[in-house]
């Protein structure tokens, strides 16, 4: 009995630590007062102020479109890479392929950002929206690969063999059998690549140009000046948006676990 009390207390403490600061931030965004320690009553004025902040809105547009595009490239590449890792067995160059594929997972962001920038400079590409999208697609691809790889490993390869045995070409077997089975994970991978791109600050700072300042960059330049209710409001919106995407992704993967049980 006491073990259960201890366990629940630990859980409560842990979640309070994880979600407390976020909850306070959210609450503050509805605070009429500018001071974090004074509750000046409920207000949505900071949100209405945002609507008139042209630069914030522009940054949001850039971030959302960069996230949408880069996640598309990352998911496509990640799907192909995961397919190679899950289905090609031991091919020559596999360890180099896998090793460099997963490098961004452990690489400090400043190093990755700097390296990508140097590539764009060496290729003499003007920095801006395009380089931002490419950089984010590079950075989020490994996350997409991890996710789709996991789904492919769960997907019984004998199903593909059965399709081939019944006369399907490899491409048809993939489209008719494998893809429908891993579809929820592919969509999840897209959504997660999307949120990672949306949230990224460090890599964007290195690789974007003056015309394409992202939302996190805009937030950052305001944060450096201290806590402000406007930032609280935009942060809350961003948190809410990501929470929505996460919920969608979680529901999708859960659906897969239930429906794919027989596979």
């Amino acid at each position: 009995m006491s073990a259960r009390v201890l366990r629940n207390a630990t859980l409560a403490l842990g979640f309070a630590f994880l979600y407390g600061p976020i909850a306070i931030l959210t609450a503050m965004s509805f605070n009429a007062s500018r001071l974090v320690t004074v509750w000046g009553g409920f207000s949505t004025k900071w949100y209405s102020a945002l609507v008139h902040d042209e630069r914030m809105l522009q940054a949001a547009t850039i971030s959302l479109s960069a996230a949408a595009l880069s996640a598309l490239i990352a998911t496509f590449n990640g799907l192909l890479a995961a397919l190679a890792l899950a289905r090609f067995g031991a091919f020559r160059g596999r360890s180099l392929f896998a090793g460099s594929l997963y490098a961004p997972l452990v690489l400090p962001e400043v190093v990755f950002g700097l390296g990508l920038l140097l590539v764009f400079v060496a290729l003499d590409v003007e920095r801006g929206f395009v380089t931002l999208v490419l950089a984010h697609a590079a950075f989020t691809m490994c996350f997409a690969t991890v996710m789709i790889h996991a789904a492919l490993k769960d997907c019984d390869p004998t199903l593909e063999e059965a399709a081939a045995d019944l006369g399907a070409t490899p491409l048809r077997a993939f489209i008719l059998v494998t893809l429908p089975l891993i579809a929820p994970s592919v969509v999840s991978a897209y959504l997660l690549a999307f949120t990672l791109s949306l949230d990224d600050f460090v890599i964007a700072s290195f690789t974007t140009g003056p015309g394409a300042t992202t939302l996190p960059m805009r937030i950052y330049s305001q944060v450096r000046l201290g806590v402000s209710p406007e930032v609280n409001a935009i942060s809350t919106l961003l948190l809410g948006f990501v929470a929505l995407i996460l919920t969608a992704s979680a529901l999708l993967t859960r659906g897969r676990a239930k429906g794919g049980g027989a596979g």
Binding site: L166, G167, A168, L181, G259
Partner: peptide, 17 residues
């Protein structure tokens, strides 16, 4: 897919979807 042979898999490998 080009062989006039079909296989019944041990796990059956029925397409779950």
């Amino acid at each position: 897919h080009r062989r006039p042979v079909n296989l019944m898999f041990q796990s059956y490998a029925l397409f779950p979807h």
